[in-house]
Design a protein around this nucleic acid. Structure first.
Lengths: 349, 349
DNA sequence: CGTGCATATGACAACGTTGTCCAGGCTCTA
DNA sequence: TAGAGCCTGGACAACGTTGTCATATGCACG
């Protein structure tokens, strides 16, 4: 490591270690402030000779435009915010990445924050992003009341909800067909002969969870199967409790012969539990996950396309910013049943 | 959805749809500008009565402080940047999330960008973040020359490299012990009787890839096993080519009896290929991944703790900002060999 | 040679906030 | 009751940039 670049002072506390400004560049190049601005922004009306001098001063001083000031002046930050549940969840990584790509195509940066499924934290994050004047906001809601966003939306912050609809306000939303997907998944199990089918999902407070539960109920009802309470476990997410819930519905006098898992985290835990069981229990999970095909048996899933969700929502966001879009809409993306074995196991009564 | 909140005008193009400012609030509350500022920032020296009037005006107007202006004035943005390779990669999700948590504890937001392993894009992103005056920068480098950051670092941008060291500048770096991990992993295979061991890894241009290759070579050398070129595949990442590389070293007159996979993506593809083979081939992969224990056999891996990497690096970043830290350091986190079956298979000659 | 026009450049205000400083009104004490 | 001291509140400049507008320069043309 031949060279050393290190801050010279231990950071005075305020001010960015005295960075050069356009004024400094102008002084050094012997030109006016505005001329520097023109060069920096590639505006026309500067002689090549002048431009060269300015560029030289810029390089010599290590000048970099202060976008904060620029934003203050221009009113656009060229950045958008994404509030999601947890970036560490494999469902959100691709979603966030897809959003980032769209943002990049529009010259914008992406700031994302994890709400940890906590409504207060969601609000705190969303408002912090608004205070930074992001041009737009993508929200995967944790809460169910988004009236706090009304002033922001009125003030021109483009807003699109993703994966779950907004609560108590009318806003764009892009989501997967949770209801239809779950219904089809459960119907698939029924078609393979199952009647005692368990359901493990998140709190029905969460829209997707409620929809998937509704899909489950509909499929059962359509098949004329009365659902027993002991087959359903709601509001259970952490591995430990999912495990217990699964073990419970798999024991007793009339255990379930198949399980429908409400999301990828639940599915993974259920897979573990089923692997320990003596008899074969069928499984269909909502959300695809890597390696699902390599397990024994492969895990049949209702797949949703996270990247497509993000892409579609971000597209819509920028169309709002263009002024092209005016009325809030609900866009539902289809899900896809992928059969791999676990969902085609026959019941073992 | 009882209420409708929608931008009133189709966005004039500039200016944030005319948001109220502190001046507006002051006028409405009948107080001075600075008094509003005091209330908003919870500064002392305001009568409860005055504060109430101001708060009322704030709520009525839907005022939200413009952080751009604040930043301009204060010189600190309370945000840090994270440049990584691809947020959709399951390795980076937890890392990013860990960084976010540390940032949150310091009241900062996190902006992250994906370089897609492209040095130019890394630089573009890093400099864009600097233009926004992030207080600090975490970089998982794609390139190997970071002199472009010298002016920024000198100007006071705290900088920590993660997962791979900086190129041509002296800077803090937090990484896993790739060399030691790979060496131990390969030694593990050797201890189980393997001699013809394949290595599939990324371009040696990437530091971690080079280190893992070095670990492989060392382990082989320590065991007195000469390495044949056909056992090594470098610079191969996309599934299709990994597959071909694996298939090649598994065929021929003296095929490998074990494979060491250089990162999680490679491992996953190799698992697929091995599943199709008639004979049992041992496998150790670098990076742990979800469900590795549920495959048949379970996949033995050299695990690194992505969250710990992120947490450690972010901690260091904020300590730089405190002024506590002055000399760049290299921090190496240990890896851990997790045996699950695939690495303990005997050779089938 | 004067006029008109295009082009290059700079002076200046404004963006919305916060830090500094001062004024006015109050309480307390001698 | 006068003066000192404290508390509350406001006027004003500054942060670094960009938009507006005016000026200076050069050139072509009548």
């Amino acid at each position: 490591m031949p060279e050393t670049a290190r801050r010279t002072a231990p950071l005075s506390g305020t001010r960015y270690g005295n960075r050069p400004t356009m004024k400094d560049v102008a002084a050094r190049a012997g030109v006016g402030l505005k001329t520097v601005s023109r060069v920096v922004n590639g505006e026309p009306g500067v002689t090549p000779e002048t431009e060269r001098r300015v560029q030289e001063a810029i390089d010599a001083l290590g000048f970099r435009r202060n976008d904060s000031a620029r934003v203050l002046r221009k009113g656009r930050t060229a950045s958008i915010g994404l509030v999601l549940e947890d970036l560490a969840d494999p469902f959100y990584g691709p979603l966030s990445r897809a959003v980032e790509e769209v943002a990049r195509a529009h010259g914008a940066l992406l700031i994302n924050g994890s709400s940890a499924e906590d409504p207060d934290r969601e609000q705190e994050l969303a408002l912090a992003l608004c205070a930074r004047r992001v041009d737009g906001l993508l929200i995967i809601p944790a809460g169910d009341d988004h009236r706090y966003l009304e002033p922001e939306i009125r003030a021109g912050v483009a807003t699109v909800f993703v994966d779950r609809p907004a609560g108590k306000i009318d806003a764009d939303v892009v989501l997967s067909d949770s209801y239809g997907g779950a219904r089809d998944g459960v119907a698939h199990l029924i078609a393979h002969g199952h009647r005692r089918i368990g359901f493990i999902g998140d709190m029905p407070r969460i829209h997707t969870a409620a929809e998937r539960l509704r899909g489950y109920r509909t499929a059962m009802e359509d098949a004329g199967i009365p659902v027993e309470d002991s087959w359903m476990s709601l509001g259970v997410t952490d591995p430990h409790r999912v495990r217990r819930a699964a073990e419970e519905m798999l024991s007793g006098p009339a255990p379930v012969t198949a399980v429908f898992a409400g999301n990828n985290r639940v599915t993974v835990t259920v897979v573990r539990v089923l692997a320990e069981q003596a008899r074969r229990v069928a499984l269909v999970g909502f959300d695809d996950f890597e390696l699902a095909d390599l397990l024994q048996p492969g895990v049949t899933v209702v797949a949703q396309d996270a990247a497509a969700l993000g892409r579609t929502a971000a597209d819509r966001l920028f169309r709002q910013l263009d002024g092209t879009l005016l009325t809030p809409e609900r866009i539902e993306l289809p899900t896809r049943l992928i059969t791999r074995g676990s969902g085609e196991l026959p019941p073992t009564d």
